[in-house]
Design a protein around this nucleic acid. Sequence first.
DNA 1: GCAGTACCGTACGGTACGGTACGCCTCCGT
DNA 2: ACGGAGGCGTACCGTACCGTACGGTACTGC
Lengths: 218, 218
Amino acid sequence: MQPAPAISRDAPPEAPSDAPSARQQAVLDAVLALMVEGGDPFTMDAVARRASCSKESLYKWFGDRDGLLTATVRWQASRVHAAREAVDVLDAATLRETLQDFAASWLAVVTSPTSVALNRIAIGHAGSGKSNLGGIVLANGRFAIGARVKPVLEAGRAAGLLAFDDPETAFRTFFGLVGRDIQIRLLLGDAIPLDAGAIRRDAARAVAQFLALYGQPA
Amino acid sequence: MQPAPAISRDAPPEAPSDAPSARQQAVLDAVLALMVEGGDPFTMDAVARRASCSKESLYKWFGDRDGLLTATVRWQASRVHAAREAVDVLDAATLRETLQDFAASWLAVVTSPTSVALNRIAIGHAGSGKSNLGGIVLANGRFAIGARVKPVLEAGRAAGLLAFDDPETAFRTFFGLVGRDIQIRLLLGDAIPLDAGAIRRDAARAVAQFLALYGQPA
DNA sequence: GCAGTACCGTACGGTACGGTACGCCTCCGT
DNA sequence: ACGGAGGCGTACCGTACCGTACGGTACTGC
C-alpha cells in the first residue's frame, strides 16, 4: 500500500466545478440507479443504454470513466447536503433533539442503497490509486457530517451542557455510537433490516449514550 | 440491490474444508502480499508470477478466481483467530483488562494493511453477488469477535460488574466505541497514523467509555 | 531405465470492456 | 429553406484478463 494521500478535513468541498446540465443530471441519476441495482460490473455501455445517450456523449461530458464516477459522487453529495441549519443550542432538550436529528439522518443516508453502492465503488477504487473517489466520499460523508456536528457540540459546551476537551474526539465517539457496525456490515453484504422506526430508536439510544458520556449534570 | 443473503451469526465458520498444503499456503501468502501492495488489479497472471507457479496449478488447486479469493480469506482468518482464551472474569480489573485486550487486538487487525486490502476486495465482490466473500469476512471478523466478546460481557454481568439486557446490543456499542470511524476511513483511502501506542490509548478510552455506560457501581 | 505424476513456464482462445469513429436524425438560428 | 451543431445509435479497435492447452522438467515407484 502506497502512502495514501491525506483527506482534506473540515472543509466540505461543495461543488468545486461547474454544475452538470439537466441532461447530464439525468445521466448521473441513471448511473446511481445502475449502481443501486448492482449486479452489473457497471460498464459504460450499460450507462449509455440506461441513460439513452451515446457513449460518445458520455466521454465528451465526463472525460472518462473516472470522471463519470467522480461526477456521480459529487452529484449525490450535492443532493444529500441539507441546508446548514443555524446553531442555536440553548437548552438540553434542543441539544438532544439536534443531535438525534443528525444521528437519524446520518443513519438514513448510510443505510440507503445509494450510499452503500457508492461507498462500495469508492472503496474498490481506493485500492488502486488513481482519482481518489474515496477522498471525495469521505469529504462529503464522514467529514461533512463532522463539520456540521462539531459546532453543535461546541455550542453545547458553551452552554454548559457538554464537557469535552477536543471536539474532534467527542465527535468521533458520537460517530461510533451512531454507526456501530452498521456500515461495514452493509458494505460486506449483510442485510440489516432498518426501517424508519429502528433508525429513530437507534438515534435516540446513541444520543442518550453520548450524553451519558459527555453531558454535564445541569 | 438484490436481497442480500443473511450472514450466519454467532458461528465462526472455522475451516469448513480441507486445509491447504504448504505449497498452497505459500501461494495464498503471495496473494496476500499482492493484495497489500495494491495498485494491481489482482490478475491471476500476477499471482502465478508472484508465487512462481503456473496458472494451471492455480486453477487445479482453487477452481477459479473466486475460489482463490475465498481460500485466501479463509487462510488469513485462520491465522488471525487467536486461541479462545477461557472466560474467567472475576473482578473489575480483569474485566477491564480483558476488554482492552480485545479492543487493542481488534484495532490492530482492522488497521493492518492486510485487513484493509482483504476487506476492500470483499466489499467490491459484495456488490456483484456471486460467492459471498463478504459473508466470510464478516463471519471471521465482526461476528467472530462478537462471539468471543459476548461471553466476557455475560460473565461480567454474572459477576455483577455490568448491567445490560441484550449482550448483542451491548457488544455493538462496544464495537462502535472501539472502531468509531477508523475502518471506513481506512477503506476509503484515508491515512490514519495509528501506532501501537495510539492503539493502546484508543482501546483504553473505548473500554473506559463502555464501562461508564454499562458498568455497575461495585 | 522407464512409465507416471506433478508442476512450471508460456502461448493461445474467448470475451468483456474502455475508448473512438461514423452515419443519421432533430432542432435551432438566419 | 438551409446549414450547422448537438446528440443518439452502432460499429469498431485495442487491450486486459480469465481460463485452458501444450511442451518441458524434476521426482518417484518399479
